[in-house]
């Protein structure tokens, strides 16, 4: 404790006499001060032009999940996307996915927000981007998947109270159609192939569907490329440059 205090006092003394150029001498001392947690110098660099959204855990719908669950809440994500769209300093958005899926409506809401964002977006699936994570991954301008990451494609299901009438099935079918059409519109996978994977039997132990791994997702046209964070950032910077160039061109046309 004594030592800590002494360092702190030494620092204060120097602050009182800023005329003397002692900075080089004090640098090891300053280092110690930082290590001991005595000074809290906010070393803020300028605003990052790339923002990042992480979609982790379960995608929470209208029901709040117990706090032991890791969730992504749409009431957090959607205002952030609005802010990113509005902030002129932000030029691109990176989406990192490691999700088990969750609420269909919430997932589709996030996907629609991302696909309609005017700034370049790149998604990266790490670990897993299952069920409703699939439309979120494909909603971006360019998508990456880690080689070991997986995506489960399976039909929509319902938990809770179900009314046992044929209309329930029709309702579910319509909801599924929304997911299928979103994915096929925003990726290169044909509808037949996506449905084939979705209704495949014998792949998942307790469900109908397919677990698509990294390179297979690219092969089917669901994801654009296998890669990691380096490739994703590089691609995003590339798209940002393209976006800037096209902006300049369109401005030139107006004049």
């Amino acid at each position: 404790m004594d030592q800590e205090n002494r360092f702190a006092n030494a620092e204060n003394d120097e602050e009182q006499q800023p005329q003397q150029p002692k900075e080089e001498k004090t640098s090891p001392l300053l280092e110690k001060i930082q290590q001991l947690g005595q000074t809290n110098v906010p070393q803020l660099s300028q605003d990052s032009n790339i923002h990042c959204l992480t979609i982790v855990g379960q995608i929470e719908g209208h029901l709040q999940l117990p706090p032991q669950n890791k969730t992504t809440k749409y009431e957090h994500i959607i205002p952030q996307i609005v802010a990113i769209e509005q902030n002129p300093k932000i030029e691109g958005l990176l989406i990192i996915l490691n999700t088990v899926g969750g609420d269909v409506e919430a997932g589709l809401a996030i996907s629609e927000m991302l696909s309609s964002l005017s700034k370049p977006t790149v998604s990266l699936v790490l670990g897993g981007g299952h069920s409703i994570g699939v439309p979120i991954a494909v909603s971006c301008d360019y998508s990456f998947i880690a080689e070991t990451a997986t995506m489960t494609i399976h039909p929509i299901r319902l938990t809770g109270l179900v009314i046992g009438v044929p209309q329930t099935f029709e309702y579910l079918d319509k909801m599924q159609e929304r997911v299928v059409s979103f994915v096929t519109r925003h990726s290169k996978i044909p509808e037949e192939k996506f449905k084939e994977l979705m209704f495949e039997k014998g792949n998942l132990t307790r469900d109908i569907g397919t677990n698509v791994i990294g390179t297979d997702a690219v092969k089917y046209g669901l994801i654009d490329e296998v890669g990691g964070i380096g490739q994703a950032i590089r691609k995003l910077n590339e798209l940002i440059d393209l976006n800037k160039k096209s902006d300049e061109q369109s401005e030139g046309l107006v004049q």
Binding site: P42, S45, D47, S48, I50, C52, L53, H76, I84, L93
Partner: peptide
């Protein structure tokens, strides 16, 4: 940390 700014994740505090 719920921010979308990657810099915010670097704050030790």
């Amino acid at each position: 940390v719920l921010s979308s700014d990657p810099n915010h994740f670097l704050h030790q505090k």
